[in-house]
Design a protein around this nucleic acid. Structure first.
Lengths: 200, 200
DNA sequence: GGAATTAATGGACTGCGGTCCAGTCACAAT
DNA sequence: ATTGTGACTGGACCGCAGTCCATTAATTCC
């Protein structure tokens, strides 16, 4: 990003940074968040334990970055300008999210758990994971209200919370978060596909 | 409950059991789940640390029992046979739940977090907290479908997950879980009084 | 009265996340 | 070349959850 910003002192070893994230991602996927220690990650990355704390304030921050930046380009396709009914776009978005969850769902649950015990991480998680996705859905629902796909009296923010909430609820309860859920949520929000209220 | 079941060996000290739960409840409410250690609870209860592990497998189990059995009679009024529209009864139920959350919400969030790292506690929490409340809502929605308060094509289990999900989502994100949310959820599920989907 | 059984106690122990620190290394500025 | 600064290292350290264990206390069964 800002490589031009050369500061005084010994520069950070960029390779080491990547190695830490790679090790964290691999170990967490292989063994699960709670079974992996910072020491193990450091060891696999070939780095001192303290070097990890030099870059991330806590284990959760490292794993968040490893899973949701290095790990997979999880940013959904730009939706703001896409055509077509909002219902279909919402379903596409949810399918993408849930597909990612199929791989890193347990890690995501562990991060949500970690956020409960660490206010700073809670904020980071909220800014970098929760709010963007929530805004995406809220914006879609706002648009749907403008186009008449949902009734004007309904509350996009609340519906968004219910959608993400159902997702979290199932995730945190160890229940499947899959394509079927994505479709059912869209169905529930927009009405049945055959007897839609929007078109026919 | 089963006091008649006299087994051999030294009997458990019932007073000590109550003292442990009382201490746990008080300390957790005063300082928060993560800031309270088992050692502190034992100390306040006037009991050896190991005695706590003698009765509960983990800190989370003790706190679950302390908060949701000793702490407050949280079991909602028997709903199965109550009269009146389901919408009103659901709102009453949610208001009761959210009122309890106003006091022990942070502890509840900590327990949900603990469940992510401990499969045995996850099961216990599910059996003793999640499933009963979910069943209550699902049953209400089933009844609403029979009576026509909601359309027959809708899915009570999914709506229940969306309701509890919105609750969890807001709780775990540090947002208010209050009467306003309860009313908004009922409004969203059953339709607005002025522009309802069910009735016109 | 004595087993047998279970509870309660206190202390040692392990592994963890996170902190602290002193020493060393790599770079920029002078 | 020297100085300043920040990265890296390795180790000590703290408090915690949870385990293990030997000892002692209370109760039932024989």
């Amino acid at each position: 990003m800002d490589d031009g910003e050369r500061r005084a002192g010994r520069p950070r070893d960029a390779e080491a940074g990547k190695a830490m994230k790679r090790a964290a991602l691999r170990l967490v996927r292989e063994r699960g968040y709670d079974s992996v220690s910072i020491g193990q990650i450091a060891s696999v990355a070939g780095v001192a334990r303290q070097s990890i704390y030099n870059r991330w304030p806590a284990k959760a921050d490292l794993v968040l970055e490893a899973v949701f930046e290095t790990g997979a380009g999880f940013d959904p396709p730009p939706v703001g300008t896409a055509p077509g009914p909002v219902a279909a776009r919402l379903e596409t978005f949810l399918l993408a999210v849930f597909d990612h969850v199929a791989r890193d769902g347990e890690t995501l649950a562990a991060l949500i758990a970690a956020a409960q015990a660490d206010a700073a991480f809670r904020q980071a998680f909220r800014d970098r994971f929760v709010l963007p996705r929530e805004a995406l859905v809220t914006d879609m629902l706002d648009e749907a209200r403008r186009t008449g796909e949902i009734a004007p009296g309904r509350d996009p923010a609340l519906i968004s919370a219910m959608i993400h909430g159902a997702f979290w609820y199932r995730l945190l309860n160890g229940l499947p978060v899959d394509a079927q859920l994505a479709r059912a949520l869209c169905h529930e929000v927009f009405g049945s596909p055959s007897a839609s209220r929007a078109g026919g």
